[in-house]
Every structure is written in C-alpha cells, then in structure tokens.
Amino acid sequence: MANEAELRLRERLSKLGGMKLLRGAKVSGEIERLEKQLERLRGERGDEEIWRSVELARHQERPYTLDYVERLLDDFFELHGDRARADDPALVTGIGSLRGRTVVLVGHQKGRDLKERTRRNFGMAYPEGYRKAMRAMALADRHGFPLVTLVDTPGAYPGVAAEQHGQGGAIARSQAAMMALSVPTVACVIGEGGSGGAVAIAVADRVLMQENAIYSVISPEGCAAILWRDAGEARKAAAAFKPDALHCRELGVIDGIVPEPAGGAHTDHDTAAALLGDALVAALAEVESLDPVERRRARRAKFRAMGVFATA
C-alpha cells in the first residue's frame, strides 16, 4: 500500500543513486522519474495531478473487473441474474479461487469496444444489478466465503426503468446488506468510484483504491455544471472536491492505496493484477482473525466515524 510503495521506491532510488557514481548521467532520468513518483506518493497533489487521476481512472485501456478476474481468480464461475427479473451485464458476480481460497466476487464491468460498452451500459448498473450483488453477498455469508468487490462505475444508471425498478432503494439495501455480513470483506476502487452506484458495493472491512482511481460524490462534469454553471470547468471542480486516492486516504475514507505499474494500470495489466492481488489478500488477512460479530461491529464503527463536523 502507500507506505510499502514508498519504501519500494526509496529502495530503488537509493540503489540508483549508488549506480549513478558508476554510470553517470545514464540513470539520472530514471532517478528523476522515481523522485517525481515518490513526491507524488508523499506530497500534496496539485490540481494537475488530480486531473491526471481522473483521466487515468477513465482510460480506455485501463483493466476492468473481468481483466482482473481472468488474472486473479482460478476456476471462476459467473453467477447470473437477480432471481427476480433480469441479469444486469453492468455488474458481474461470481465465485472463484483467489490464491487457493474460494471468494465471492462482485464488480462493475465496463466494456472495451463500442458494442461491449453498450451491452455493459458503460458500467452503470440497474437496480437488478444491485439485487444480483445482494444475492452474491448472501451466498458468501451462507458459506463463509470472503467477499471481494471491485468498484468501477460512472454511477448507477439514471433511467426511467431504473427508477421504476427502485434504484435508490436498491442502493440503500445493498449497503445495508454489506454492513450486515459476517464474512471478511474487501472493496477496491479500480477506476471510477461514481457516487451512490459505487458505494453500493463498497461498504467493506477494508476499502482500497488503486493509485490512479477516483472516488467521488459526483462527476467533475456534474459538479461543474451545477456550481460553476459550466460543465467545461470540470478540472476546477475536480481540484475542489479532490476525488483522488491520496485525498480519500487523508480524509479517512479508504484504508489503503494499491500501487499501479509506472505510468498507470493500463500500461501493464499483468503487473497491475499482481499488485491488486497482493493488496486484496493482505487486506483480507488483516480482518480474518477477528470474530465475525466483532468484525461487523468494527465495520459499522469505521463508517460511523466518517465525516468532519464542528460542535458550536
């Protein structure tokens, strides 16, 4: 996580620093790049850095849930349908083996090409998707399988049918269902964590974000349209509400930051998956030792404490 990533970078930096004596200028570019990366991990992020996260989080080549499933979960078996009326392709659920251990997976799924994007509704789930997620959560609880959720959505789908099928209630109940689970749970925002549609599957014992993911109450464009009366001011809006991983960590909203390959997760899906796998396993190990009742109590207490207010 952030500290480990920092340590790793420091180690590489000091090694390269030593090498510079032997090979001179050749590695200085690399040192500069690493120093910059270290700076980014440690220091205050500028507005440009925040916007870079927004762009990377939405990058078309960024790995999606099923890219990670393919690399991290053996024997994956996808579970379809909410057992009431439909199967929502924008949200994937299934059972798989994470490094030898059966887990239940819930994750938003965007599409790679136009056809797939349309079929997946750009990762924007209907209430049916959240009901499918709740079914998978209940399955995990029944069998004592840990729950892993991967968050990557611009938001829950804002459509007439979605409203008629109870979008608000489904998002509320999905959070309540996660809050009540006995099994260990870990959530990771792997791209866009868009508002209610994201937090619906992110009420976990450990909530992680990838280095370049964003997690926000509203899209930068939406915020700009309302507060600046101009959707073109999205950069200013993002700088103001700070949806990047470092700020979310500082605000106590997430428990850790998962490093990505240099340049972003889209540059190397395999490495991104390996780093994510390590983080998920480590996070589950942290909460596994707790008694189920204590784990649920701690989960509630964690979210109960979130927020900053004054007492006049």
Partner: peptide, 23 residues
C-alpha cells in the same frame, strides 16, 4: 441528495446513516 461541497465525505454519510439504522 449528498452535499457536494463536502466531496467524498458527503457520500460516506450514506453508509454511516445506514449503519446507524441497523444499530
């Protein structure tokens, strides 16, 4: 809805209030 001037902390009031209802 959520108060966007408080960013992600406003979104976190959803699980916070839901947990309180569960309690």
């Amino acid at each position: 809805g959520a108060r966007m001037q408080e960013g992600i902390l406003a979104l976190m009031q959803l699980p916070k209030t839901i947990g309180a209802v569960e309690e």
